[in-house]
Write a protein that binds this DNA or RNA. Structure first.
Lengths: 361, 361
DNA sequence: GTTAGCTTGTAAAGCGGTTTACTAAAGCGC
DNA sequence: GCGCTTTAGTAAACCGCTTTACAAGCTAAC
């Protein structure tokens, strides 16, 4: 119980050498005769020595620790990313600490500062809020040690890893078009985010390929269930004759589907829906949700590889890598009912409209 | 760029006092005249000083950091728990580091060792694998600083916080019984885990209240999708005339539902299903899944409060606290087909979805 | 006036490592 | 045997902060 914690000096004494010798041996800075090595290793094993990470970090001025900056670990998308990062970091001898920001730029700056003070060796940076010049500036000052992941930080230089949002939007649009839809709605994340813009751009590119297709409505908001609900509600209220919706995140899709279910909008008979991200168990939904799947684990892995190579003095070439996304066809997209008609409009009766009004306060 | 990082000594010099004075002021160990305080605070602010956490930890012999030991952060259940722990820890001045074990006892011991070496001040310990005497022993040696969460470690003393698994099993069983089921199956986690045993015991207690009810089959395995698939497959293959299944985790339920869907087993017409945990978006499943919901966030919060009080020398009374679980009625349970009262089936789609929305706020 | 007790501070010894500067001993060519 | 280079190893400074031991200056009590 009251046993003393083994220190380097204990190992040294036990092995009959000095602490410096043990330290340099441990860090591979010296080549020792086999019997000395044996004595040292023996002592370490016998005493159960483990270096004190705080002392080590203090002394070396680096910690072999990277921070994973994310908005929210409760979100399964980020959780999966975190898991991938964790697993990828180990083999590089890097520990990772979770830096949850709740999307507050104050906290983001805080972690950037930790990087600046060398309390963290590198950062994998994922932020979800609108452009922030100060943030970009802070990132650029540390550029060799941060990789931007999943969502762009405008004006920040340095390496970035994204899913191919534009292509994802395009695939979603084309799939809907091929099913025969011509009046489409887009429920996006925050309007000025790269991910939203790229998904929208890709979606528009697809629509451009069918002369009669039009983006009848679009909505923006957080990547949240609440935004999904609100936007879906607004969409129904607007009464546009929309036959298909592109919900650009798992959370948005879930919120929208809740509202559609509550209003008895049948998917896909009344309305086709396609999602984005594809982390939630959509294959068991009613109906199974067609969506664009992001390569979440690959994103995390790549970010670590890139950062690790940068920390080892490797050249991290600035600029974005876009990893391919994938269309997962399930059952939430079918041909529009009357070629043009929308069930959505019809089912919105006076009572629903009233409730809408109440809720929107 | 090449600016030096501000150290305590810089602050001291700038304020015209010694480092000890600044340090003691910062740690509240001294009461200084207002003008001295003003000079110190001014210097700190002006120089943008932040203490080096490694130096601080090294010097104080503690880190104000607790470890959250969990099997897998990619699992939404654990992710939600982690999120709650994170949020609860902040106000106590505690940082939390994620200790992902992948259920390997080697890693669990590693983190326990870190605790023993004072690299971590406390541990919230969640393990999912079968009993391990050595683990219990290691935990007992540090008992004042670890709280066991969610799953028991047998023979470990000290504070423990669980959902009320037995009551959850009971509620599930009673609900199924009330719907008229008499031949039931149980798909559990690892057989010797407390959570599995308690859920099974509760389930059996409920069945005991209906003379003709019997637990026709039970399966054990990991809390994994794969186990859900395998057990559901075995269940169908066995050909028992089972009318209802209790799937004891989100993952198991998902795996089982996949198999049922693939085999065209209609839920609830052919088979009623009730789940456990209730983190996944089951309200949008086909059909919406009835389940027992665990108070995940409350579990995390309580664990932190308990640990924090223990670290402050408070008395952590040993023994388990069991937080109440909740039955969430949806549509995956109905009367058995050739049983009586099939008219009781609910068709409350809209209303149910609405309630979901209210609840999730 | 001397002793005692605050108040406001200081100097310096850790905490447990890493690393630089240096030495003693051995190896080697001639 | 002599100078020169390796090899094997040491002592001590240092990383940035906390904390102990102590001192000077001032007030109050005896």
């Amino acid at each position: 119980m009251a046993q003393k914690i083994t220190r380097l000096i204990d190992v040294a004494q036990h092995a009959g050498v000095s602490v410096a010798t043990v330290s340099r041996h441990l860090n591979g800075h010296i080549q020792l005769p086999v019997d000395t090595v044996a004595r040292i290793e023996g002592a370490i094993h016998e005493l159960g020595y483990r270096p004190n990470p705080y002392a080590r970090s203090l002394s070396r001025g680096r910690s072999d620790t990277i921070g994973l900056v994310i908005p929210d670990i409760a979100n399964p998308y980020f959780a999966l990313l975190a898991s991938a990062v964790e697993r990828a970091a180990g083999p590089h001898g890097l520990a990772v600490v979770l830096c949850v920001t709740l999307n507050q730029s104050e906290r983001e700056h805080e972690y950037l500062q930790r990087l600046g003070r060398n309390h963290l060796d590198g950062l994998i940076f994922l932020t979800n809020h609108a452009a922030d010049e100060a943030l970009a500036k802070a990132i650029n000052e540390a550029s060799r040690r941060v990789v931007i992941l999943d969502e762009d930080v405008k004006k920040a230089r340095g390496p970035k890893i994204f899913g191919d949002n534009e292509q994802g939007g395009y695939l979603a649009g084309r799939h809907l078009l091929e099913a025969g839809h011509r009046r489409l709605a887009f429920i996006g994340g925050p309007e000025h985010l790269m991910s939203t813009q790229a998904r929208l751009a890709g979606f528009r590119r697809a629509l451009g390929e069918a002369p009669s297709a039009q983006l009848t409505a679009h909505y923006f908001g957080d990547y949240s269930v609440e935004n999904g609900r609100r936007s879906a509600g607004a969409l129904l209220r607007a009464g546009e004759e929309i036959t298909a919706v592109f919900a650009t995140s798992d959370e948005i899709a879930i919120g929208a589907l809740e509202v559609f279910a509550a209003r008895n909008v049948r998917i896909p008979d009344d309305l086709s829906v396609i999602g984005f991200d594809g982390i939630a168990p959509f294959h068991l939904f009613n109906p199974p949700l067609t969506c664009i799947r992001q390569p979440v684990e690959e994103l995390g892995r790549r970010a670590v590889e890139l950062l690790a190579s940068g920390l080892n003095g490797g050249r991290m070439r600035a600029g974005a890598q876009r990893l391919p996304v994938e269309l997962v066809v399930r059952e939430s997209v079918s041909a529009p009912r009357n070629g043009q008609g929308s069930g959505a409009k019809m089912i919105l009766n006076a009572e629903d409209a009233n409730r809408e009004r109440m809720e929107s306060k």
